[in-house]
């Protein structure tokens, strides 16, 4: 079929896709090109065309800045802590729920644990503040019983555990869905014949359930590693003033504070671009790794 034929046949489809293409163009691809200001001494008055190119000047300044490395260290540490303390919880939850026989009870629990995923971070932080903050229920109860009140929302040294607890509260239930789906694809006959062969429940868990979950676990682990520099923006920007930048500054908030708020756009864009490029490389490497260990990965050449 010639191009003109196809155009005459498919133009309504192209019209349908047009608005989305325009929006993505204006608000995704166009700003992506705007990252050239990372290589400029950008001034809002001069604009991109009028601002002077300074090569890697912004990056040199950034790499010499201890606050930047502090933000990188915080981000990576938070990712690591969440891998250890967050990642296994949805798996455990899914196993627990899968073992509940009554489907009514199962649906009820699912309904309850999915719910916080649909709350905003502002709301989640507000609720935590009311429970364990300085004026919260925990402090109030301690004070009533003659103890010293504690404020877990403003302590820099335990902040990393606090944000992990918040993430678990908000998203562990939601993270369970994909494991429940994987569990439901494991054939019950496997369990039955294993039981007939004398495997007890723990051996069945080890030899049937966990291997059944392996592809999903590997995929999610890889996705998380590829996303190592993204730990959630809103959660940190909301709490940074309470605990200070030493503990709560992550790469995204660094861009916001050092770039946008002080008007140092070129420098902020450099930090943002650093995060974007390293993140992209991590995703590509993680995906390559997934293929190497024989898993599907996130995408494949088709």
């Amino acid at each position: 079929m010639t191009f003109r034929h196809r155009l005459r046949r498919d133009w309504p489809l192209l019209v349908m896709v047009l608005p989305v293409t325009v929006l993505l163009g204006v608000f995704h691809y166009f700003p992506t090109l705007g990252n050239v200001i990372a290589f400029q001494d950008y001034s809002p008055y001069a604009g991109i065309r009028g601002s002077e190119f300074i090569g890697f000047g912004n990056f040199q300044r950034m790499f010499a800045e201890p606050a930047f490395w502090q933000a990188v260290a915080n981000t990576v540490t938070i990712t690591a802590v969440q891998l250890v303390f967050f990642f296994p919880i949805p798996i455990a939850l899914a196993l627990l729920l899968n073992s509940v026989l009554s489907s009514k009870l199962r649906n009820l629990i699912q309904g309850v644990v999915y719910l916080p995923h649909f709350f905003s971070w502002v709301l989640v932080v507000s609720l935590f503040q009311q429970m364990i903050g300085g004026a919260g229920l925990l402090a109030q109860t301690l004070r009533d019983n003659g103890h010293q009140a504690i404020d877990l929302m403003t302590k820099p040294d335990t902040f990393i555990l606090l944000v992990t607890a918040q993430s678990v509260w908000k998203d562990a239930g939601w993270g369970m869905i994909v494991f429940l789906a994987a569990l439901s694809t494991i054939s019950p006959e496997l369990y039955e014949s294993a039981a007939a062969d004398g495997a007890n429940r723990w051996r069945r868990l080890w030899h049937i359930t966990l291997p059944g979950l392996r592809p999903v676990i590997v995929l999610l682990l890889i996705l998380r590693l590829g996303d190592a520099l993204t730990v959630g923006f809103e959660q940190f920007i909301l709490q940074r003033s309470a605990v200070g930048g030493g503990a709560a500054e992550v790469l995204d908030t660094y861009v916001y504070y050092q770039g946008l708020l002080v008007g140092d756009f070129g420098y902020g864009a450099a930090a943002g671009l650093f995060k974007g490029v390293v993140g992209l490389v991590l995703v590509l490497v993680a995906n390559r790794f997934a293929h190497m260990v024989g898993e599907q990965g996130v995408y494949s050449k088709s």
Binding site: Y29, F30, P31, T32, G34, V255, A269, G272, K275, G276
Partner: peptide, 13 residues
């Protein structure tokens, strides 16, 4: 695969 970044987005808006 990648986001445009906060600052370039802000400048476009």
């Amino acid at each position: 695969l990648f986001g445009p970044g906060i600052i370039p987005s802000y400048l476009v808006v």
